[in-house]
Simulated assay, not measured.
Amino acid sequence: MSRSNKQIIYVNTPSPAIDPSLSMGTFGLRTTSIPEHIPDDKVLVRVHYLSLDPAMRQWLTAKRSFSVGSNLRDRFKVGEWVIAYSGWQEYAILGAKEVQKVVVPEGCRPMDAMTVLGMTGLTAYFGMLHVGAVKPGDTVIVSGAAGATGSVAGQIAKIKGAKRVVGLAGSADKCEFLKNELGFDAAINYKDSDWKKQLKDVTPEYIDVFFDNVGGEILDACLARAARNARFAICGAISQYNAAQPRGPANYMMVISQRVTMKGFIVFDFAKEYPTALRDLGKWLAEGKIKRKEHIIKGGLEAAPQGLPSPKLGT
């Protein structure tokens, strides 16, 4: 008797925001069957967790995106943990290039392969060290700092000797988390009416490195505080993903006057350097220099759309 497999599929283009409803929204729910026979060049994977990342929102409407068999019987054993581009479903039948066995460093755990030792941690690593080129004594600002990528980026800046690391987040609780648990020097709630004044107060020597996950008004405010030869690592623009007409930076002339380098990047650009990055991240994680905190959305597969930015969810 074949087993059933629930899947979340993309059915309607956001207009411009995501509707997380599975009845008349952006996504739909369908049930398929898992074949009785799995070919020798495929492996059947049961999906335990899905990583829900802001970048997925852009994939839904981007005109140009960055998203891109051999015998497997001896390569994988029942019960082993793997990470894969499985799609939103309970089970997936995948080929050799679509699945990767999880190697858990000492002191770490399988879930880390989706967080600090996964795409979000690698994005933070390369964005902060290669694009932002953080160095001792720098003042560093991270937007979206309480998120999976921003939280690691700020901690890497501290590890590398930044003089001051400041996070921007959307609630008082998140700001306390950044300061008290992750070791940020300061945190600003961008929903405060005086957040721009707070930003000025905590950057008396201006901003050397800005790791941006948000864009919009926050990017503009940080451009106004840019130091000479500042490096702006543009990782994301979550404030603009649901906008009908995305807003670009108005303070772009600061790029000229302060000789600012503003560079967008994608983690896949650094694929050849993943082994070195994972060794560093695993070591820092095991030593307690990087702390992690997962946010798990309850409700099974059907709850997956709630993990993406949506005005209906207040994100």
Rank of each mutant, 00 (worst) to 15 (best):
K6D: 13
T123Y: 09
A227E: 13
S193L: 12
I256T: 08
R64G: 04
I9N: 06
Y252N: 09
N242L: 04
G121N: 00
I18N: 03
K289W: 07
I38K: 08
V68W: 12
E176M: 12
P105K: 10
Y274P: 01
I296M: 06
V104F: 05
E36P: 01
Q7N: 11
N71Q: 13
K272N: 15
K97R: 13
Q7H: 08
F232W: 02
E181A: 13
K97E: 14
I207H: 01
A55S: 13
L50N: 10
E287C: 03
G248K: 09
K63V: 14
Q306G: 01
A277W: 02
G150V: 07
V152S: 02
A186Y: 07
M254T: 06
I18Y: 00
F210A: 11
D212E: 11
M111A: 14
A172P: 00
N242A: 14
M111Q: 14
E205I: 04
E98H: 10
K197L: 12
G300Q: 07
L281N: 02
L122S: 12
I93A: 13
S33Y: 08
P39W: 07
A230L: 02
D74K: 13
N12I: 09
F268S: 15
F177V: 10
V11A: 13
P249N: 08
A250G: 14
W195R: 09
L308K: 08
D138A: 14
N180S: 15
I290F: 03
A250M: 07
Q240R: 04
